[in-house]
Amino acid sequence: MNRREFLKKSSTAAAAGLLASHGLTLARAQGTQTYTMVTFLSGISYWKDAYRGMQDAAEYLGVETQYTGPTEYDITAQARVLDETIAQQPDGIVLTVIQADALQPSIDSAIASGLPIVTFDADSPLSKRYSFLGTGNYQAGVVAARYIGAQIGSGKAAVITVPSQNNLAQRTQGFIDTIKAEYPNIVTGDEYIVDNQNTSEAAASGLSALLQAEPDITGVFSSNAQAAIGAAQALREAGVIEQVQHIGFDFDEGTLDLIDNGQLGATLAQGTWQMGFWGLMFAYMVRNSKIESVSDWQAAGISPLPPGVDTGVVVINKDNSKFWRAS
């Protein structure tokens, strides 16, 4: 494309009033579009599936993807990386936020400049992001409660979690509320919570102690991957791994091994692939004006997309675990 054509096309596009944006972004829209995923703690494996989903969608749509984010758990660092990403003017951003409100100004100004942003996994609800795709953590706790409830029917149930971590606290609350509401014969509550400080060691020590205090515990919900590994070891060391029903959260090779050799009943897989896949789809739809939920959503001042999508959890057990291996 030569300079003259470029100017002509961009002025046409601008005149068409499809998007209130400037020339450079539009120029790129004519060629291959680029979408960027921005995370925090970017080195951890958890985001891999989400980005794989995004890449799958990109292949289908014929666009490019990029992945970025600070490796540390630092609000300022993520704000900086997001601002730098926005300055490079990609065609859309699929973003997960370290803190609900901290990135709102950056998000809002990017949206105002015509750059579509959707959030996934962790939301910034007060910002103008088009949509949020993530696990309903409370709902995930409900699923875990129904699994344990159906397995044991009566007895006592413990929760291994990190009380200071918001998403895990929601899972815990969903679990405890549901057990109390739907399984009156099962005893659980705050005094059955073990703080595992995100390590297997603390999960094992804590559950071991709780098993001494309450020897008739028959159900355990581990709300993170380290908790599941540690709790399984504590049950094994106490010699009650056969009797106690145990459901974990998230999956990695170690968790899947535990399921396959019968030391962990099940685990809950989040829809991380879904978040990446549909996140890009959403951003692409807005960027390329494919959606007309009302006659003119911009004039109406609404998002054309579903504002919140629960990507849900699915139960992995012995019967289906092989489908999550090497994925």
Binding site: Q197, N198, T199, S200, E201, A204, Q226, I229, G230, Q233, D252, E253, G254, D257, L258
Partner: peptide
Amino acid sequence: LSVSRFTVADPGAGSG
């Protein structure tokens, strides 16, 4: 020894 106990090597183990 911790890996041998938990059967899994967690790169995040031992923080703090």
